[in-house]
């Protein structure tokens, strides 16, 4: 896959679980190298949109493209090479009987990538975990340490696109700052594209150019992140969210 101007594109996407539709008619595009935020009410379908893009929510209709390739209805190895997801709760996504080392080496083995030892060390250092943690199991880590392992795992394959579901909501502010700085640096150095779910508007202000706001399964507004400076939103739900977040 070469370089594309548009990294992610969704057009009239509906998504259902067991026939019950939870996401309605979602359309947006994320340019290559852009950071795009998805914010909105709890239960409005943000994680579901990310899962559909990653091929993990099979019941979708409409059009999804990632780096010019049509979206998939099942997990797809070629897609995984270029597009990685960090899940909302790292507990469920880390295998309880695999050490941190095994979790981080596995994607390299699957995709036959060498230099594993050095890459694992680097990835741990990138997310601020020292060597002590390399051979621990998930239950021997704190919540924030687990989340950092999940982020490190997603970075192992050096993807071009990252789908980040509340990547820093389990992290204290100091580690959050390190991870946000890291994401920003990686984007500058490698031109990564981020689609990030968060309920933290200041995080959007720091990292993203644009944001889509979801409410009850629909996108109600797409706005530039600079709207967070002055509250220039037109949708009533967004205005409420902004005011409740301490914006004025």
């Amino acid at each position: 896959m070469g370089r594309h101007m548009t990294a992610i594109s969704l057009s009239h996407v509906d998504i259902a679980y067991d026939g019950q539709r939870v996401v309605h008619d979602v359309s947006f595009e994320v340019a290559a190298g852009e950071s795009f935020a998805l914010v909105g009410e709890s239960g409005s379908g943000k994680s579901t949109v990310l899962k559909a893009i990653a091929g993990l929510a099979p019941e979708w209709t409409g059009q999804i493209e990632v780096l010019g390739q049509p979206g998939s209805h099942r997990p797809d190895r070629t897609l995984a090479r270029h597009c990685q997801m960090v899940f909302q709760d790292p507990y469920g996504s880390l295998h309880p009987r695999k050490t941190v080392d095994a979790v981080l080496s596995e994607p390299l083995t699957i995709h036959r990538i060498g230099g594993q030892d050095a890459r694992v060390e680097q990835a741990l250092a990138d997310v601020g975990l020292d060597r002590r943690f390399r051979f621990r199991y998930p239950h021997q880590l704190s919540g924030g340490q687990r989340q950092r392992v999940a982020i490190a795992r997603a970075l192992m394959l050096e993807p071009q696109v990252m789908l980040l579901d509340e990547p820093t909501s389990a992290l204290d502010v100091s580690v959050q700052a390190e991870i946000l700085n890291l994401l920003k640096r990686l984007r500058r150095e490698r031109g990564l594209t981020y689609l990030m779910v968060t309920h933290n508007l200041p995080v959007v202000s720091f990292l993203c150019e644009r944001m889509a706001v979801m409410n009850k399964g629909r996108i109600v507004e797409i706005a530039p992140a600079t709207a967070l400076h002055d509250g220039a939103f037109r949708d009533p739900y967004t205005q409420k969210l902004y005011a409740a977040s301490g914006g004025d």
Binding site: V173, P202, S205, H229
Partner: peptide
């Protein structure tokens, strides 16, 4: 104080957040 400085703001203008 280090923790407090690391909190991002709604009108964020810093290109990098201070880390501890």
């Amino acid at each position: 104080k280090g923790l407090l400085a690391a909190v991002p703001r709604m009108h964020e203008t810093r290109d990098e957040l201070p880390v501890m």
